[in-house]
Amino acid sequence: MADIALNPRPARKRIGDVTAWQRLKANRNWLGIWFMLPTAAFLLLFLAYPLGLGIWLSFTDARIGRGGNFIGLENYEWLWGDSVFWLSVFNTLLYTGVASVIKFAIGLYLALLLNQHMPFKAIIRALVLIPFIVPTVLSAIAFWWIYDSQFSILSWSLKKLGLISQNIDFLGDFWNARWSVIAANIWRGVPFIAITLLAGLQTVSPALYEAATIDGASRWQMFRHITYPLLTPIIAVVMTFSVLFTFTDFQLIWVMTRGGPVNATHLMATLGYQRAIGGGYLGEGSAIATAMIPFLLAAILISWFGLQRRKWQQGEAND
């Protein structure tokens, strides 16, 4: 494909000379197809096809390496009555809900703080980004060690301060484990949200604030009526990403708890992995993965229609 296009043949030809091939080359639609080819190949072969295949697999009893037979809805029926599956759904919703809300709150607050004038601004912003840059797995390992049941630095510090008398069992107790992994997820997600919102804040024209100050608006009023509405579109995008990637998180859980204790932190993604790759039940694992799709679609639609419309309404009102 590349050599065809590379051929530097100028289109300075007399009309009569134009061959079918030349027309094809110049034709916008055909050229478009050529240009789209690599992307289409990747996305069709490694994204669309597997996506369809996954849905198909969820209707079969496929095991690792051997093809399955069509068994209809049996995998779903089995999951419907499987308490571990429902637990993982609950965990996933809890994990996504709590982590996304807190990430957003802290992220917005941090963005507002960073938007103020202060010395060493650039360095501080770069530092804030670090948790986002470092590979998740590697920081998860650090958290794993921080949450160790015997040698946790947090337990040690709290003990020295006299606040607790026994080590906190971070990853061994159901709720402790859930809050611990959520905390790690928040820690990891805040910088992305903060920096993105910060950039959004900087597009807000200072003149608006000046006008508001002259009108005697309070800080909260300014935030509520100027900052927030103008930020809405970027909030929509950021939160869609944040919710989606929290919902489908795998790495943090896999490294820190592998779904334990007693499945208390299993997310749908990790349970799918355990059943499909660990246990070898590809069909059942695919059914779990497929069951995530409706949730994701719902999240996308909510953010798309909910927030987009508000942005549009806002725009209208402002104009």
Partner: peptide, 28 residues
Amino acid sequence: YRGAQWVGGAIFLAYLVPPSILFIPLST
């Protein structure tokens, strides 16, 4: 080209398909 906008939208949607849904069929 014709339908470019739709393709653009589809590509953006592709970004929202997470690896944790795809890894099982992709492994096969």
